[in-house]
Measured scan of single mutants.
Amino acid sequence: MDVFMKGLSKAKEGVVAAAEKTKQGVAEAAGKTKEGVLYVGSKTKEGVVHGVATVAEKTKEQVTNVGGAVVTGVTAVAQKTVEGAGSIAAATGFVKKDQLGKNEEGAPQEGILEDMPVDPDNEAYEMPSEEGYQDYEPEA
């Protein structure tokens, strides 16, 4: 019985440690998101679009440190934060509304985080759909 109880105690310690790591990862992701939003706020009209992409990228980098179902929630929060940063930029006159959601080359930025393969159960990952990809044929 002692062996059984000791095993359960060790398992509990492992769960607590994993929860603490997840909590730490979420806190880091939130900190990076805040950094990115402050970065966007300090940019001029020309830099705002690039700044919004930076927020998304920093958040995406930190999301990889967070495991399990938390990833889905962090990704949703990050996307809403990026959308909010863009709205703030438009409201303050840093950028025109028609410039939001495009990178410096004018290509749409939507789907940055949505296409990231995420499995809350950590069982399997699927690649994003290939609808947006084109076949590449090298020139002879």
Rank of each mutant, 00 (worst) to 15 (best):
E105T: 12
V15A: 03
Y39A: 03
T44W: 15
P120C: 06
F94R: 01
P117L: 04
V63G: 02
K80C: 07
K102I: 10
G25C: 09
K32P: 01
T54P: 01
V77W: 15
K58C: 06
V16H: 04
T44F: 15
A90E: 04
E105R: 13
I88K: 03
S9W: 15
T44I: 15
K23S: 05
Q109E: 09
Q109P: 09
G67D: 01
K43C: 12
K10L: 13
K60R: 08
T64M: 08
A90Y: 11
A140Q: 07
I112P: 09
E130Q: 11
Y133H: 11
A53T: 15
V16Q: 05
P128C: 04
L8S: 00
T72F: 13
E83D: 10
E28R: 08
T92I: 04
K102R: 09
K12M: 14
P108Q: 08
Q99L: 11
V48R: 01
A89K: 03
G31I: 05
G132V: 09
M127R: 05
A107T: 09
T33Q: 01
K6F: 04
E123L: 10
Y136H: 08
E123T: 07
M5C: 01
A19P: 00
V66P: 01
M5P: 00
A91Y: 12
S87M: 13
Q79A: 07
T59Y: 14
V40E: 00
D98T: 15
I112T: 09
G101Y: 13
K102G: 06
P108E: 12
T54R: 15
M1I: 00
G101P: 09
V70H: 01
Q24A: 08
K23M: 15
A19S: 02
G86F: 14
H50W: 13
A56H: 11
G36N: 14
V63K: 01
N65G: 12
G41D: 00
G47C: 08
K23P: 00
D2A: 01
G84K: 11
T54L: 14
E104G: 08
V70F: 03
S9Q: 10
G68N: 15
V40A: 05
K32M: 14
A56T: 08
P108R: 10
V40R: 01
L8T: 00
V70Y: 04
V49F: 10
T22A: 12
N103R: 08
T44S: 11
Q99R: 05
A89D: 03
K45S: 06
N103Y: 05
Y136E: 03
E57C: 03
M1N: 00
S87K: 03
L8K: 00
A29I: 13
G86T: 08
P108M: 08
K23N: 01
Q24I: 10
S87C: 12
E139H: 08
E110T: 13
M116D: 09
K10I: 14
E123F: 13
S87A: 12
P120F: 09
D98V: 03
V48I: 12
Y125C: 08
K96A: 13
A29D: 00
G31Y: 14
V70N: 01
V118T: 03
G14A: 15
